[in-house]
Design a binder for these strands. Structure first.
Ligand SMILES: [Zn+2]
Ligand SMILES: [Zn+2]
Length: 823
DNA sequence: AGCACGCCGACT
DNA sequence: GTCGGCGTGCTC
């Protein structure tokens, strides 16, 4: 109990899943810098960790010991007051700790200082050499001898199961090892590259004679005499360089040297000073859309807009004009694009307009570089931040406009804690700071569509493509007819086959799409195309061979598989699915001469596969590209004039209430990219259920018609945007224990429901992706009419009903507010 | 989360 | 008697 008026205390939030901040006293020497938003190094149990000051106070009455802060490493706060407010709201809304929200809002690494590093002392070295200790102890000492300055984490990684925390403490107290706190962490990303250069030899003449009979060595030596080459470069000049190079090295006419270099990156152009372009003239439609936007930016009050514009209607030019206007008004701007669209080409477009006034927060940056960009924004050296999801936290002041391109894109939702949606965070930030939010897309999420309809957002529509580019032509192919009337049992309809042949003949390119993610084994009628769905939840039922039943992944309902279709008495088929590999094999068989490239989760493990694919596609070295939907985004490939959606049903029958919305988005997005100049693209969509209401809407590219029907269904079935949802995800390596946790959670929540009307539960049920990396998963969906009710319910369940107690040790519960991914 | 502590069975 | 595996509870 302290009440001295000259003593000050701070509340510190840590990046740990702990519900509330911790109180520390501030030593006299740190007093003048103890400000909200400041990073703070603090003792915490047995360790010292970095947290963030979230409040300063002048007294502290507590039942616990209050420890003093150890250090304040920075001179200025890492977070402004408004960012503190925003992160607090975020933590509250998305059910995470304040410190976790803060950590998400600043560059990685800033919360990592404070770990200890260990080295052997003299006595420790002697003890190690006298070998008077057990094997596992020796292993620890040996690592420390080999790598003095290892952190605890590094020791754990090196020793694996042999790591023993007790031994570490034992040695520390015996003074065999010494602990020091690590000062700063610098991590610029380097990679090793081998370089070759020529050695002159005794004389040029002697070299010439020595190599007279080996022209390849001579050629290589001459090349290397001009300048040094990296092995990567050499390989491009001459793939068979290895043998002659080895011989040159043997004759001491060349040497290689390994050096650390910064990896050449497709982003390197950003270092050059940008050219400036003159803005194009706006189309009348763009002009009309710009007017209210520019007026709102000038006004400087919170307002949101939804630009619903067909692909190619020139939304980006509108964004550019709006950002330009914000700068002219002396304000700043955030430009967000989906992760996959944040390519050098996208960046170039903004750099051409805004030069060095823009910071680009892309994933190719090293930690240090990311921090540098962030710093440039914070210190006002730039006025625009361009980036993916996390750029919503760009530390700009005086924000005029926040643009979110492709608003419907799922990558705006973070899928680990804190599970925030950048669009919704942007809206909150703009509301607090009096900024304008512009959401743009050809296919709004139904949440945004509803907000536009109710007037929460002002809607602006663009129906024309710039330069009068024709709209793509979309054909829906009935695969049942293919089978019955044409005896064609192939993956390819005759229409698609012919269209591909046609492209091959013309030297044009084809995309073939196949959705796999979450594509389950659904059950359908061969005759009428009816797909069995849950009578309660309306999501597709999934076939399980173990018990030959269908299951609903939302409510856990089971049903027998009927012998015949309830509608038409037709034959029932359990769809077993096929993957991109089978599609690739089939494509190669049908088009033997074609150059086929497959890109999916297996082959695209790293970004370089993407780049290879893009380069090859642009160099016309691919005729047919096979992949999942990710290849559609971010790039225009002007020579791709045909897109085949191999089986739309796979996407349509994903057991998720948004599967139809996603299918509409997918086809629309790919259609928008097909074709070039005045040649319209063609999209062929194959399906067994052509009578589904989405297909006419797809064919006519009529989003509003689709949305109207979809909204009707969502309203009837109590799904977003008419209700708010929270998903509880249960994860456990032990199947029984996980199932028990899920059961207990349900019982607890059912009990809690009695004090709430308007809230209901779906499930728990095994997740669609039941087993991910050795863990079993369950899902429980909570629905409520409003987000306020849902928040109150969650708080009640946690505080009054002890939600966490239902989670058995070993099980993991994560709470996903406004979930997007329900697989 | 990550760390220490305590309990317990296994093995010098 | 000590080592190390695992479950439990705390961190200002
Ligand atoms: Zn039928
Ligand atoms: Zn159901």
């Amino acid at each position: 109990m302290t009440g001295n008026s000259d003593k000050i205390f701070v509340e510190v939030a840590f990046n740990l899943p702990l519900p509330s901040p911790f109180t520390y006293s501030v030593p006299v020497g740190l007093k003048d810098r103890a400000l909200p938003g400041m990073r703070a190094l603090a003792p915490f149990g047995a360790r010292r960790i970095t947290g963030f000051i979230v409040a300063v106070k002048y007294q502290c009455d507590s039942g616990f010991e209050v420890k003093p802060l150890e250090d304040l490493p920075d001179n200025i706060p890492a977070l402004s007051e408004s960012m503190l407010d925003l992160t607090r709201w975020l933590a509250d809304y998305y059910q995470c700790a304040w410190g976790e929200a803060i950590a998400a809002a600043i560059p990685a690494g800033l919360d990592e200082a404070g770990e200890d590093i260990f080295s052997l002392t003299e006595t420790g070295m002697e003890a190690f050499q006298s070998s008077a200790s057990s094997d596992s102890d020796r292993a620890l000492l040996e690592v420390l001898r080999e790598r003095p300055g290892s952190s605890r984490k590094q020791l754990q990684r090196r020793l694996g199961a042999n790591f023993n925390a007790r031994a570490l403490n034992k040695f520390k107290s015996r003074e065999w090892i010494r602990a020091q706190s690590k000062i700063t962490r610098k991590s610029v990303d380097y990679h090793n590259e081998k370089f070759v250069r020529a050695l002159p030899g005794p004389s040029p003449e002697a070299t010439e004679t020595a190599l007279k009979r080996s022209p390849r060595q001579l050629g290589l030596h001459r090349l290397l005499s001009q300048r040094e080459y990296s092995l990567t470069e050499l390989k491009q000049i001459d793939p068979g360089y290895a043998a002659p190079l080895r011989q040159l090295k043997d004759k001491e006419l060349a040497v290689t040297e390994t050096r650390k270099v910064r990896k050449a990156s497709p982003w390197d152009f950003l270092d050059e000073s940008p050219r400036k372009e003159t803005p194009p003239k706006l189309t009348p439609e763009q002009e009309t859309a710009c007017k209210p936007l520019l007026a709102a930016i000038d006004k400087g009050a919170f307002q949101s807009f939804l630009i619903q514009g067909v692909t190619g209607s020139g939304k980006t030019e509108i964004y550019l004009r709006c950002i330009q206007r914000a700068l002219e008004d002396g304000k700043t701007a955030i430009m967000m694009v989906p992760e996959i669209s944040l390519t050098p080409q996208t960046a170039e477009r903004f750099r051409l307009r805004f030069g060095n006034r823009i910071a680009i927060l892309h994933s190719g940056l090293s930690r240090q570089e990311k921090f540098d960009e962030w710093n440039k924004i914070q210190t006002g050296q730039v006025s625009i931040a361009l980036g993916a999801r996390s750029s919503v936290f760009a530390p700009l002041t005086n924000i005029g406009v926040i643009v979110i391109d492709e608003e419907h894109d799922g990558s705006y939702k973070q899928d680990s804690t804190p599970r925030y949606h950048a669009r919704d965070v942007a809206l909150m930030r703009a509301k607090n700071q009096g900024a304008v939010v512009i959401l743009g897309t050809a296919t709004p999420s139904l949440e945004s569509h509803k907000n536009a309809v109710t007037g929460k957002y002002q809607r602006l529509v663009l129906t024309q493509r710039v330069n009068n580019r024709p709209m793509p032509w979309i054909q829906i192919v009935d695969m049942r007819q293919e089978k019955e009337e044409r005896r064609n049992y192939s993956i390819f309809s005759i229409a698609l086959k012919n269209a591909i042949r046609d492209r091959l003949d013309n030297g044009e390119q084809t995309f073939l799409f196949l959705n796999r993610r979450g594509a389950a084994n659904y059950v359908f009628c061969k005759e009428c195309g009816y797909v069995f769905d849950c009578s309660r939840c309306s999501v597709s039922m999934t076939f399980h061979s173990e018990d030959n039943k269908m299951r609903c992944h939302y409510c856990n309902g089971f049903a027998r598989i009927p012998r015949s279709c309830p509608d038409c008495k037709g034959e029932i088929i359990k769809f077993q699915g096929f993957g991109t590999q089978k599609l690739e094999a089939e494509t190669r068989r049908l088009f033997p001469g074609a150059r086929v490239f497959r890109l999916d989760r297996d082959t695209a493990k790293n970004a370089s596969v993407f780049e290879t694919m893009r380069d090859k596609l642009n160099a016309q070295e691919i005729d047919i590209l096979i992949g999942t939907q990710m290849i559609a985004k971010g790039h225009d490939f002007p020579n791709v004039t045909l897109v085949g959606v191999t089986l739309a049903d796979l996407s349509l029958n994903v057991p998720d209430f948004r599967s139809c919305e996603r299918t509409f988005q997918l086809v629309t997005q790919v259609a928008g990219r097909a074709g070039r100049g005045d040649i319209p693209g063609k999209v062929i969509v194959q399906t067994n259920s052509p009578d589904h209401f989405v297909f006419p809407c797809i064919q006519n590219q009529d989003f509003d018609a689709y949305a109207e029907k979809e909204l009707d269904l969502r309203k009837k079935l109590r799904y977003p945007p008419f209700v708010r949802t929270v998903s509880l995800e249960i994860e456990d390596a032990n199947e029984q224990r996980g199932a028990e946790t899920a059961r207990r959670l349900r019982n607890l929540l059912k009990g809690a429901l009695t004090s709430f009307s308007d809230v209901d539960l779906l499930g728990p049920a095994p997740a669609v992706l039941y087993k991910i990396s050795m863990k079993y998963r369950w899902r429980l969906l909570i629905r409520a009419a409003t987000s306020q009710t849902l928040q109150r319910f969650l708080r009640y369940a946690q505080e009054q009903r002890d939600l966490k107690k239902a989670v058995q040790s070993g099980s993991k519960l994560s709470i996903d507010v406004d979930p997007i991914n329900l697989l």
